[in-house]
Amino acid sequence: MSKKITEISAGSMADIAFLLLIFFLVTTTMDVDVGITRILPPPLQDSIKIIVERRNLMNIWINKSDRIQVNENEVQVEDIRQLVAEFLANDDFRIEETPPSMPEKKPKAIPLLGQQVYVSKGIISLKNDRGTSYEMYVRVQNELAAAINKLREDFSEKQFGIRYSQLSDEAKLKAVQKQFPMAISEAEPAIIGGN
């Protein structure tokens, strides 16, 4: 009765593991997906028109030949960062008054910063043509993000002493984001400058 139970040979274990390993080596793709994240606005109800005062608005147009106009001037894509950073700058967030060339500010309660701080009312309006190339569109979006990130970096450094990109405290992140919101509005599609 005392038949010896034959042991399962473990010699082929390495081979099996090798086979699996090679399979995963071949199918794996290491690239991480990165990109510019945006939140789309909900669809417009008819007859609702939001009127924004002229000084609070910075218009950016991109036409079908990828040329860019900011307000009244044609600019290069590299200039946008500086222009947007100047437009949305908010050096002292405890003061409401702004020079007439700058957008107005509105009072807001932001945790960690105070019950009544002032946030810029400035809005970037981005309009592109159907013929604009995607590459140029992304470059402009990238410049806008860069400008706002720059403002957030500086603000975070001044307020909390840590760079915005290094902030890990959720509350502080929220505070900086509220102080400098991603105020980008994309217009309803329209044809600019003909097709």
């Binding site: 990109g35 994240t37 939140i39 789309l40 669809p43 159907r130 979006q141 599609p189």
Partner: peptide, 25 residues
């Protein structure tokens, strides 16, 4: 790609309520 087709897709996404998008770069 021209923005026309991208805009159409974005409009459709707005209609459907998929607001969170990511431009892959």
């Amino acid at each position: 790609t021209k923005m026309g087709i991208v805009t159409d897709v974005k409009q459709e996404l707005r209609e459907v309520g998929a607001f969170k998008i990511n431009y892959s770069t």
